[in-house]
Structure formats: C-alpha cells, structure tokens
Design a protein around this nucleic acid. Structure first.
Lengths: 337, 337
DNA sequence: CCAAACAATGGGAACGTTCCCAAAAACACC
DNA sequence: GGTGTTTTTGGGAACGTTCCCATTGTTTGG
C-alpha cells in the first residue's frame, strides 16, 4: 500500500557501515570521521532521506508538539494569538496542534483527551464560556505536562497565566467616557463565570466610583456572548425611563451588533450615545463611526504564553512557578465616543 | 524528569497476563474472555491509562494527522476553511497540523518539510501569492502522500482541487454592475500568478463582452495583495480623465481599503462609484455602505477538501483521481452597489 | 473417552530511531 | 615495536504498541 520509506538502515547497508554511525552523522554527533560523514550526507541526499519523527518521538517520549485549545476561531482574536504562539513554538522546533472547543465544555474535554493521547509536551488553554469543572485540565498537571492559560484563565489552578489588564483596560475606557461628559454609562458584560468578565466589570465600577457616579445596577447586564441576543439587551436599555448615554461592551463584536441596532433605530453615535468596545478586533475601523476600543496585544499574548510554556517544558517540574503575566492594554479613542 | 506513564505492560503485570491480551482488550479485539476484559478495563480506568499515540503511530507508520498549509490567518477566510476541514478530519479520528506560510514561498517550503518529517497522512494546501516552483509539493506525490489543493491551486499538478467558481462569481458581480447602469467598471485584481486572479479577471472581461462594453486596459490593474498599496491604485483610477463609475476588487479587504479611501475623498458610494468585493469576509456588513460581495462557501470548501483527502488516504494510490470540485458562489447585493 | 474444533492466551518480532557500552582502528610516544 | 591514549565504529537495548504464530485450555461430537 504505502511506498517504502528510506531509513537510516538503508543508508547504513548501502555504505556498509552501522546504523549507529549513520545516526551520528544525521544528528550532528562529532565523533565520526570526515570521510564517512560526507558519504552519509551525500547518500542521504541522493535517496531523499527524511527523518522519521514518529520514531524519534517514541524514542524520546516527546511529541515535539504543543497543543492549543481555544474557544473559537471566528473573531480575529484567537487566530492572532495563535500566530504569536506558533512563531515562538516553531522557532524552538515545536509543532502546534490546534483545536477549537467551539465554546462547548464537552468539546473542550474531548480536545484535552486528544492532546493527552498524542502526548503533547505542553498545552496552552483559553477556556470556553461554559467551563466550570477543570478536572480534564488538572490531568495535565497530574501527569506532569505543563499547562499555561491565557485570556480566559482558570482561577482554580496554580499554573502560569497570561492575561491583559482587563481591569485597567475597562477602567480607562469608562474613565474616558466620564471625562467626555457621559453621565449614564451602561455595561453589557460577559458571563460572570469568566475571569475577564469579572475584571472588566470591576474596572467599570471603580471608574464610576472614582468620579462619584452612581452605580446603577439597571445599567449593568451580563450575557452569554451569544451575539444574537445583543439586540434584546440593547432594546431593553434604550427603553429605560432614563436610557444610557454611553455603552461599554465586553468585546467588539458585541459593540458592532449594538451599533448596528442603534443606528437602525436612528440613534446618533456618538452624539446621543457613545460606544466603547474591547479587543480592537478586525472590523472596528470599518464600522462607522469607527469604534473606540481597548486594544489587546494579541500577538504578544501568544508569544508570551508560548514562551512560558517552553520554559516549563525545558525545566524540571519542581521549578515551575505559577507566573502571572499581565500585559498592558491601550485605549484607542475613535469616532464612536 | 518526566513521570512514569502507565503502559499496557504495567496493566499486564498487575493482572498477571500478557501484554498481548491487554492490547486485545483495549483495541476491542473479540477473542478475549469477558472476565479478563472487565478486569483490564477496570484496572486501566483506575490507573488512568492513556494510550500512547506515539507508539501507535510508529507501529502503524501513520501519524493520524493531516497537515494544512495556508497563506495567512488574518482575514477570516482561511480560519473558516480550516474549521470545516477540522470538523471532517476529527470526525474521522485525524488530527490537524496547521501552518501558515505568511505568503512567503520560503516558509511554505519549510512548512512542507515539517509535514514530511512528521509523516502527515495527507496534506491540504493553499498556495502563497509568491509560489512559482512546486518541487516542495511534488515531493508528497512522489512519496505517495495524498495532497489536495483548495482556493489557491496549482495548475501543474494532477491532484484533487477544490475551488469556487471564480469565473462565474466575477461574471455575476460585473453583470450586476452593468445591469444597474454602470458604464466604466474598473477591476483591481490580484497577482497574475494566482489561478483565482486569472479566473476572476476572465469573468470580468466576459461579462463586459456579453453586454458589449469596451474592455479598457486602463481600468484593469493587478496588484500583489499588499493592502497598503490599494490607495495608490485607487488614486490612479480616480485621477483618470474618465474615472470609473464602479469598482470590482479581487477580495473584500481590498474593497474595504478602497472604500475608506474614496469616502475620505468625499466620493458618494454607490451614487458616484459602486463597489463590489469578493469573499464576504467578516467586516463586509460592518462597513458603510454594506459591501456587495461574492460569497464563498468557506466552511464547505474545508469540508469537501478534507473529505477528498480522506478518500485518498483510505484508498490505493492507483485509484487516485485528480477530481476538480467547483463550488458555487453567491452574489450578495448590498448597499455599496 | 478421544479426536477435532474452537476459544483464549502468551511469546516475540516489528516499527525507526537514539544512546550507552564495548570493540576496533588509528595514532602518539618512548 | 609495544604500550597507552584517542578517535571511530558496531552491537544491541529501549521506547509502547500491534499483530502474527504458536500454545494451552475448553468444549463438542461421535
């Protein structure tokens, strides 16, 4: 069925030397004579020899692969993070096994199992919005496989995490709205189970507190990130006796939906209602007015997370520290506020 | 360093049976007594046994992995395709090794080598805009590893390909512009090396021919997909003695750039100039006016390509046929035209 | 009750590497 | 030319499975 693949044994036989010697040449081991080295290299090239990572992996008990589990792939955020991570990983000779949980806990569990089966050398995880139980991830710890969380992190586990300063980002966003004269700032937040939702909500509240604005619970809504529901929440807010004059959303796609709905309703943005999003997703400069948003260093998140993971892979488990890296956000003020 | 992993030998020893029997239970082989089966399953569960794909892969000479090489990750197009492919692949028990060539020929070559090293069971490829030489991909054929192209295909190789009907999509787009009264339709196309660029250009020309409109070479530009250059080309078109009253671009991001530039110049879209893009990327409903575009069935492209690949993997090389699947596009008429 | 058939199990090679240890070859020195 | 040292090479185990073949144990039928 499958064609015969050239192995080091083929090379050894043809040159009448042992496979050990061939292996030494191919791995760059010094103690081999110049003459044999050349002969091996030449023949390997002629035969189009390709090392078999399957064998190397088994031999070394390492897959030379890191796994990445992300909740989705549609918004540009995670692909960007993955780009950063992949850069660092392949630099270090690691492959990247990507899987999407599709925001489903069950799928996340299944993905984790695949990673385990394939003996990934480490894993990068951003949780689904559903995940409440972390047993499937604690397995990695138990088996001595390093794990690093990013963005949507797990408070229950003492492992490295890479996040952005969601609190400060939200604080700056809301502060900006206050300083531009907004009096009733609504917040359409994410599910309370997510760490990021909590932090952004805190930032929102503290900004209001600092400037002595009342925190009106009626202006704070949390939703499950299902974009189709945005309209409902916005409608509810606009129908309030005292509707908001500004809106801070958990992320950009939510802000987009909100803006489209409000524009259709004839509301003037930013005159009647200002909008600020979070993440600086693709599209935030396309919509009109261009969306003010809190930019996250997506690429860097991936790089840092991958580097922390590699550091663990290359060190003894006893030295692992639950480093908590908080990256800076940047408020990009644009037309919507 | 690394913790000892439970193997079938551990299980065998504890139960005083042979590893063969344990293996039989775990792989679902029928000829094993109910009693032993239960005992093995129970202990495996207790010990948290996890099969070692590294060993299975070597033993079976299969990585149970398919590779995907895409030029980029930033626009939503390729991530969507990957989602479709991943769905089909994991259904069939295959992992997916994704790599981006970053539109660089060199990176594509390097990626191909990684795939080869890792003995992927098959590979899905969409070429970079630079790729002119296909030796690094012909290696797969030579080694008996199935390869399927999608979107950006290689005319030189007799292998399955999945594309959308670029010709018809472009034709319909331009026909729509003609039927809505446009007289001077410009085309900002992609690099002539890409199959898609050629097909879309053909569709553009044939639509003009059908309706007896002159093909003005001055209105046809091809560029290297470097978005920063869009402004230059658009400026050139607008400065013509007889500027165009419609623009058909090679893809949506190009249309976005063009629209932003033209809006800044004070042009009314679609009154003074209509715009039609290609791909229905994320953002085409965000920009104002909403972009008329030719939608591609991204998800389906991935599914079909993956299925064709699996079909090859599961059949003898002698039966492989260079199937050419052309999927339908759909013209979405929106505000920009 | 014995042969034949079948069910259940064990032993060991194989997959393609790496790496340790020992052996052989080459070289230096007195 | 023999001894000691260094360089170069070969042999073989190991990684964790699967799978073929042989063996043992159990049942069936005459």
């Amino acid at each position: 069925m499958k064609k015969h693949q050239i192995t080091i044994i083929d090379i050894a036989r043809q040159l009448n030397i042992s496979k050990s010697t061939v292996s030494r040449v191919l791995t760059g081991h010094p103690s081999v004579s110049e003459k044999t080295r050349e002969a091996v290299l030449k023949l390997a090239n002629e035969l189009d020899y390709q090392r078999n990572m399957l064998a190397i992996n088994l031999m070394s008990s390492q897959s030379h692969t890191i796994g990445i589990i992300v909740p989705e792939f549609v918004t540009s955020f995670f692909p960007m993070v993955i780009m950063g991570a992949q850069e660092v990983a392949s630099q270090a000779g690691y492959n990247v096994l990507i899987s999407q949980s599709n925001e489903s806990y069950e799928t996340e569990v299944a993905n984790a199992k695949v990673m385990l089966d394939n003996r990934v050398d480490g894993v990068l995880v951003s949780l689904t919005r559903e995940t409440r139980n972390y047993d499937h991830l604690k397995v990695f710890q138990r088996k001595g496989i390093p794990i690093v969380f990013f963005n949507r992190v797990c408070d229950d586990m003492q492992v490295p995490k890479v996040v952005v300063d969601d609190y400060e980002g939200a604080f700056k966003a809301v502060e900006h709205l206050i300083l531009t004269g907004r009096k009733r700032i609504a917040h359409l937040g994410g599910p309370t189970s997510l760490h990021v939702s909590k932090k952004r909500l805190e930032g929102y509240k503290d900004a209001l507190r600092k400037y002595n604005q009342a925190i009106d619970p009626g202006l704070i809504l949390d939703y499950d990130l299902n974009l189709e529901k945005v309209k409902i929440y916005i409608k509810h807010l606009l129908d309030l006796p005292e509707p908001p004059d500004a809106l801070f959303t958990i992320n950009d796609p939510t802000a987009f939906e909100a803006m489209i709905f409000m524009k259709a309703k004839g509301l003037k943005i930013p005159e009647e209602i200002a909008v600020v999003g979070f993440s600086n997703n693709y599209g935030s400069t396309l919509i009109e007015p261009r969306l003010t948003t809190v930019a996250q260093p997506t690429h860097q998140i991936g790089q840092v997370a991958a580097q922390l993971l590699l550091d663990q892979i290359n060190s003894d488990a006893s030295e692992w520290k639950p480093i908590y890296r908080v990256l800076k956000t940047e408020l990009l003020v644009r037309g919507s506020s």
